[in-house]
Design a protein around this nucleic acid. Structure first.
Lengths: 192, 192
DNA sequence: GTGATTATTTATCATATGATAATTGAATAG
DNA sequence: CTATTCAATTATCATATGATAAATAATCAC
């Protein structure tokens, strides 16, 4: 895989743990680029997560079904890593899917091969440790945002902290992300 | 620090990534044991988390205040690791505290010294990577439990998945953990 | 043990959100 | 461009949960 197409990814790596050239090449060797059209699933429900994704361009979400209702767990924008960690770290099939919301260019890193690289490149293991530690912190922060806040508070916090989501993502997906129905979200937006 | 007092901790390590004796000794050298009485704070709000804890005996919770109201983020029982990761992994002061709910015996591991050990003992870095990956997965699972479930569903799930919490922890702490008021929890428990 | 504090339950009322349906508006395929 | 589907809003009604207060019950200090 040509390293120039991985420039954005390597830029992200530098923020966590800069890699020696050999390590970058090793990652390039197990990576590939795919383009995915809007509304397509990048990974379907029931599939075991064996790829760590990075978004060069586009938007994605992780979603699942609860009692037949589509629930968005999270959104992902450019220059971010996506993985269904509850599958990636356990080896179990995921009940969640990854869907593309805007035509996307995505880097896929083969997870099993990456985990093997951990043995020969401690810098790579450290890099991904730090990446997922940061993601973990985000997730803890998210719980705080949900617990004991009203729907309106959650909407306003989103407006404040991640207005891009509201600008670029259909509201029906935002509603379940906030833990409310689309109709409630519409009502809250209409207030004042 | 005498390794025999760390037997439970090393037992936990074996589940994730068994350590060579030298590595166990290195961890023992930066660990200490403390006993903490019920209702005492192990770590206060505003303190930067520089210690990773392990519970030999007792129960703890992480809590914080929202608009003056005490909210429980999580409970921790015997043989589990506790850390306020949003502080540990960022180096920022935590807005959360760790409180002991039953007289406890706790192992404290000096975090900065532990992170230094990562350089000389890749097995230790891997061990803690896996420990926190598992904790991350738990946290993702938790979000799913909160999003789009009614208070009654959340209570029943807790009764199913972690009945110990309801047996050993005051309900006022459980209520905020479930994201509801104590009065609502009491009402839900009274149903049927 | 006794009184004082704290936790839990019960009751009443107010309100935010869900469910459903109808309407309007936007996106898409042909 | 038009028709069709899909997304977003608005309205009405039902209900779960919050807020407050009062009554028990349990725990704790002395």
């Amino acid at each position: 895989m040509d390293k120039t197409e991985l420039a954005q990814l390597f830029q992200l790596f530098k923020k966590y743990n800069a890699l020696p050239v050999k390590a970058e090449e090793a990652i390039a060797a197990i990576s590939s680029i795919i383009t995915v059209k809007k509304n397509k699933d990048l990974q379907p429900i029931g599939h075991t997560c064996k790829t760590i994704y990075f978004i060069n361009k586009g938007i994605a979400r992780i979603y699942y079904f609860k009692d037949g209702i589509d629930i968005t767990e999270n959104f992902f924008f450019e220059n971010n890593i996506i993985a269904r960690v509850e599958s990636l770290f356990t080896g179990k099939p995921s009940r969640k899917a990854i869907q593309i919301l805007e035509d996307a260019e995505i880097v896929g890193i083969n997870a099993n091969q990456l985990f093997k690289l951990y043995d020969s490149f401690p810098e790579i293991e450290r890099l991904f440790r730090k990446i997922f530690e940061a993601a973990y912190v985000e997730t803890v922060h998210r719980i705080e945002g949900i617990q004991f806040h009203t729907a309106e508070e959650r909407y306003k916090a989103l407006l404040q902290e991640a207005p891009d989501i509201l600008k670029r993502v259909p509201l029906k997906y935002v509603a379940s992300y906030l833990g409310i129905t689309q109709v409630s979200l519409s009502r809250i937006r209409g207030l004042k």
